[in-house]
């Protein structure tokens, strides 16, 4: 399994299961939850490096969840998944410091690539911040 932890958030259970299954097969340590609330609860309990977040969800939507994640876990990188009709939400997500947005359906390889990039940045940011901590 990979050295980093990925959290997938999507209200569509079938999609979620299928995606998690495939990621695991590619040796990505992925876990799925079905709502924004569950994602926050998960992050509160254990750390994750990258969160893949569906924008359009009943209840707490992706943008709200992103805002909350960035508030409580600023170092976690977030990749947004949007539909064609909600590209605006993806752009809005970028202004809220999401790492990137991808349009569903997304190719698995591309997703994994993005996740790796996000993790790389997470590592750099984490090192800088820990270096600052050491220096401080």
């Amino acid at each position: 399994m990979s050295a980093f932890k990925v959290l997938i958030v999507d209200d569509e259970v079938d999609f979620l299961e299928s995606l998690v299954r495939r990621l695991k097969r590619r040796m990505v340590d992925a876990t799925g939850v079905t709502s924004g609330e569950a994602a926050l609860k998960y992050l509160a309990a254990q750390p994750a490096d990258v969160v893949v977040l569906d924008v359009k969800m009943p209840g707490m939507n992706g943008i709200d969840t992103l805002r909350e994640i960035k508030k409580s876990h600023p170092q976690v990188e977030v990749i947004l998944l949007t539909g064609h009709a909600s590209v605006e939400s993806g752009v809005e997500g970028l202004t809220l410091e999401a790492f990137d947005y991808l349009i569903k359906p997304v190719k698995l390889d591309e997703l994994i690539e993005r996740i790796m990039e996000a993790f790389d940045r997470r590592k750099v940011v984490g090192e800088i911040s820990s270096a600052e901590r050491d220096a401080g």
């Binding site: 495939r22 359009k56 539909g83």
Partner: peptide, 25 residues
Amino acid sequence: LAAGIAHEINNPVAIMVEEAGWIED
């Protein structure tokens, strides 16, 4: 209604893509 409906169609499409990819895997 289009936005909602597009998303509604997009969801099963995404699942299908994932499942097809899974079979491929």
